[in-house]
Design a protein around this nucleic acid. Structure first.
Lengths: 254, 254
DNA sequence: CCCGACTGTTGCGTGTCGCGCAACGGCAAG
DNA sequence: CTTGCCGTTGCGCGACACGCAACAGTCGGG
C-alpha cells in the first residue's frame, strides 16, 4: 500500500466537504503541511484540485470529467434514460436509478421532483442496504446463499420506527420483494418519505439496476404510492427492453 | 511533486477510458506492473477503483461521490436548476450550464434533448474556448485586459468552415457578445449543430455561469434558433434572480 | 491430457524519493 | 512598526516505494 497515495486520497476526501486551506488539510490528514503542499501540487497538475483563492483549495474539474465519463460507460444509465424521464414527468416525483457495485448500492442517476420537497440524495451517494427500496430489489435478485451473506454483513441501524432491524426480517422481506416483483420502503429510511422500486433487467434476465419513485407522505399516502406501481413497472420494463431484455411470454403460453 | 501520486493519477486517467487489466495499465503508465498493483490496492481501499472481474479494474464509486458532492457545492447549479429545466421542457432541446474554472470552461450541468438527436457532451467535459457559445459568454464577461490574455492563449483549431481562427476575430466577436447580451455558435464547433448562450449573474452582477440551448440545424434554421433567444434570456434571468441578482431597472428610470 | 504462454501475485534488497524540521517571506491586523 | 499567521523553500535522514525474479493460477493449443 502506497503511503503518499493514501494520504492524497484522504486529502481529496477532506476536500469533498468544501474548500479548505493548506493546514486545515494538514491537520485533518495528520501530516506535516509541507507534505500536503507537495501532494496538492501534483493533484493540481492533474486538475484534480484547483486553487480557489490564495489560500483555499477545492476539488478540480478532472474529477467531474472522470466520474461522468465512467457514469456514461454504464450503458444501463443511457438505455434507461428515456423511460425514467418519462416516469418522472408522468408522476412528477423523484426518480432514482441505482446499481449494486462492489458490495454497495449506489445511485447512478436521479431525476428531480417537480414539487418543492426535495430529497437529500445525490448521484454517487450510497444507499443503505436495509432500508431503501432500490437496495431491496437489487439484493433480492441474488441467489439465496449470496442474499444470506449480504444480510449477515449489514448493521441494521434503525432510522425510523419501521426500519428492519434483523437479518431474519430482511431475508423474509427479500422473499416478498422477489414474489411481488417490486420493493417497498414504507418510511423505513426517513419518516416523511416512502418509495417503491422495481428491477431493470438485461438480455439474460439478470437484474442490472433498480428504479425507484420516492414520494413525501404529505403528498401521497401509502395507498396513493401503491397506485404508482403500474407506472413504475411499465417504466422499468421499458428500460429493461432498452437494455436488451425480452419480455417473458412463456407464462401465458403454457 | 510526488512521483507515486503522479503515477496513480495517470492510472486513473487511463481507467477513464473503460475497464483495463493490470499490465495494460502498467504499459500505458510506463512502469512495472508491481508498482501499478500497489497503487491499485490503495486506490481500491479508498473505493476509487474496483475490480470488475478477476483481471479488470474500473473506476470506483468514490469518484462519483466526490464529483457529485463537489458539483452540488456549486450553488449556481442548484439555483439555476428550475429555470433550466423549464427551458428544456419548453424548447425540447439540449440545455447546458457551463462555468469558467481555472482557465477552462466546463459543463457543470446538462438537460437532454427530447429529440433523438443527441449531442456528444457530458457534465465535466471541457468546452472549447473559441467555438462554443458558452465560452464566448463567459470570456466576454472579463475585463478587456484579461480577455486579450485569454484570446492570445487559445490555439484556434478550425472545427468547421465557420470556426473563428484568430485572436482578432475572437476579440471582435466578444465585443458583439457583450453588446447583444448573448452569444451565438453558428455551427462553429460542429457542422450540424448551432447554439445560443446567455449569462447567469450573481448578486453583484458578476457572471457566474452561462446557459446555452443547442439545436441541430435540421430541426431549426438560424432564424428559428434566434427565435429562441427571448426564452433563453428569460430563463437566464430567472436563474440569475435565483442566484441573488437584482434586475437592473435604472436603464428605464433614467 | 499435458505442456507452454500469459497474467496476476509475493518476497526482498536497493536507493530513491517523500518526509518533517526549521528558517524565510508575504500579508494583514493591531 | 510590530506581531503573528500561513504558505513556501532548502535540506538531510531514513522510510518506503521501486523493480527484479520467482511463484501461482488460468486458459488454449497440440
Amino acid at each position: 500500500m502506497s503511503q503518499s497515495l493514501d494520504r492524497a486520497l484522504t486529502v481529496l476526501d477532506a476536500l469533498a466537504g468544501g474548500p479548505r486551506t493548506l493546514d486545515q488539510l494538514a491537520v485533518s490528514a495528520g501530516v506535516h503541511k509541507t507534505t500536503v503542499l507537495r501532494l496538492l501540487r501534483t493533484l493540481e497538475s492533474h486538475r484534480f484540485v484547483q486553487r480557489d483563492d490564495a489560500r483555499h483549495y477545492r476539488l478540480g474539474t478532472a474529477l467531474f470529467d472522470l466520474a461522468n465519463r465512467a457514469l456514461d460507460d454504464r450503458d444501463v444509465r443511457k438505455a434507461a434514460e428515456p423511460a425514467l424521464r418519462e416516469l418522472n414527468e408522468l408522476t412528477g416525483h423523484t426518480v432514482h436509478l441505482a446499481s449494486y457495485e462492489g458490495g454497495e448500492v449506489v445511485y447512478i442517476d436521479k431525476y428531480e421532483s417537480r414539487h418543492h420537497v426535495r430529497m437529500y440524495s445525490r448521484v454517487g451517494k450510497r444507499a443503505a442496504l436495509h432500508c431503501t427500496a432500490v437496495a431491496k430489489v437489487l439484493v433480492a435478485s441474488f441467489p439465496p446463499a449470496r442474499r444470506a451473506e449480504v444480510a449477515e454483513g449489514i448493521t441494521y441501524t434503525p432510522m425510523t420506527a419501521n426500519t428492519i432491524t434483523s437479518a431474519e426480517e430482511y431475508l423474509a422481506e427479500l422473499e416478498r420483494v422477489e414474489a411481488r416483483g417490486y420493493a417497498l420502503d414504507n418510511s423505513e429510511h426517513e419518516d416523511f418519505i416512502h418509495c417503491v422500486a422495481a428491477p431493470v433487467r438485461g438480455q439474460r434476465g439478470e437484474v442490472l439496476a433498480a428504479v425507484s419513485v420516492s414520494v413525501p407522505k404529505i403528498l401521497l399516502d401509502l395507498e396513493g404510492l401503491m397506485a404508482l406501481i403500474p407506472d413504475l413497472k411499465l417504466a422499468a420494463d421499458k428500460a429493461s427492453i432498452a437494455c436488451g431484455w425480452t419480455p417473458d411470454v412463456r407464462a401465458g403460453e403454457r
